[in-house]
Write a protein that binds this DNA or RNA. Structure first.
Lengths: 242, 242
DNA sequence: CGCTGTATTGACCTCCTTCAAATGCGGTGG
DNA sequence: CCACCGCATTTGAAGGAGGTCAATACAGCG
């Protein structure tokens, strides 16, 4: 199993950024994503309270982690891209305290819990790599908390767009200055905790300042440095230094 | 090393809520908190960019995890209570992408990184317990994100007070209906991402509705059920079911 | 062609921030 | 004992960011 083969695998691509895996370990890890499932757009992958016996991993598409609110809405606490685990923590905590839903059609790997247990038990280095991945997620979560609590709508939105550019590039799904973003304004508003109306006005404002172009589900960033500066985006927390 | 001895240790108390440790493992873990350091109030324990060779754990007092903002302020992303690790993730990620500061005087255990490595390497069950702890922290972080992005000042504040009641009781630092809260209104405002002025008015409002009594650094909750209902607080995410 | 979901716009209102000033209060020195 | 200082708390007033409600435009699609 050569390096070339494994590089298609978004999990390996992601882990390569921070964990130090041997070729054998890379191969071993790549193989666990063999069993996959297709999930249509805007569907739940896991629900709150579930205690699945598989650990799921996004291989393709975009999904989100969310918690339902009493007012009928939902609060989105993470975006999941290829290479991200949906519910690795279930292996330890036992049951989901939140749900996962797709935005776009997704390919999801389903890894039996036993495989995870066996793999992490036998290969401390792999266990460490997975731990690394969850810690990076935690760092992203902290940054989202900061984004929500300190930045106003326009910078907040800009910050998200910057983060997605870096994260998508890390798995080969974005080019220099843009990427596909198949979210409706309403969904974007959900992610950024804004009303749809204000989301719309915010996007208009960013467009007027030539900070973004968003058309036909494609986001283009004319000047990445300028948008980053505007959002005060510092990518260190993503641990994806390229 | 009997159960009684170990129960003073807030780390063990906390882990007992979710991890399943043998008596031997409990003893082993209790012993790593032997070397301690006192830190005065309102001081940094670790700074951003540090790559300490010890892992720190709060044994007594209250501290916070924060990131400095470009405007000179800071954004607080977590409150650390006895039993909480300051920087367990440094053992994996290598360097701090945020800082830790005390609010009150704190007793902090300093555990050599090597000890952690050795302990988790030799005792998979302890490794799992520590992983459990970091996942609980992540759950708290998600709830904070929701708290910030969906609740208005009063419910947000109420939610924090409910969370602290449960967390402090889990380590024996709160009684049925209240606990010591030695934060100034300015610091509380920092935690809740509000201005001091609005923090003050929010507290007044909660007081007027008889939801809280906050006097002389002591918070009393006359009717816990009512405050919980008001904040829509559901303690499941803390994994501290008593 | 009408139907349905998304994007856009306008008007109004609330929550919260900001600025500024006043009040209280525990020290500390006279 | 009193004057004074520094700090936390409190109050007032004005303005801005964003929410809510409602209407309109603008798709794609059967």
């Amino acid at each position: 199993m050569g390096r070339g083969t494994v590089l298609h695998n978004p999990l390996i691509r992601k882990l390569d950024h921070g964990a130090h895996l041997t070729e054998t370990e890379r191969g071993r890890l790549a193989r666990i994503t063999a069993r996959t499932r297709q999930v249509g757009p805007r569907q739940d992958i896991v629900r709150e309270g579930d205690a699945p016996d598989v650990v799921r991993l996004v291989l393709d598409g975009m999904a989100c982690r969310y918690k339902s609110l009493s007012n009928g809405g939902r609060s989105i606490v993470a975006l999941l891209l290829p290479g991200d685990f949906c519910d690795l923590h279930v292996a330890v905590l036992g049951e989901m305290d939140h749900a996962i839903a797709t935005f776009t059609p997704c390919t999801v790997a389903e890894i039996p819990r036993a495989t995870i247990d066996e793999l992490t038990g036998r290969h401390p280095n792999i266990a460490r790599a997975l731990w690394w991945a969850t810690l990076v997620d935690e760092g992203v979560l902290r940054e989202w908390l900061i984004n929500m609590s300190t930045r106003r709508a326009e910078q907040r939105t800009a910050h998200l767009f910057c983060e997605l550019l870096v994260r998508l590039r890390a798995v080969g799904l974005a080019d220099e200055d843009g990427y596909d973003l198949s979210l409706t304004q309403q969904e974007l508003a959900d992610v950024l905790a804004l009303s749809t109306v204000h989301m719309n006005r915010t996007l208009q404002s960013l467009r007027e300042h030539d900070l973004i172009v968003l058309r036909d589900r494609r986001l283009t960033i004319p000047n990445v440095a300028r948008l980053s500066a505007y959002a005060e985006f510092k990518p260190g927390y993503l641990r994806l230094a390229s």
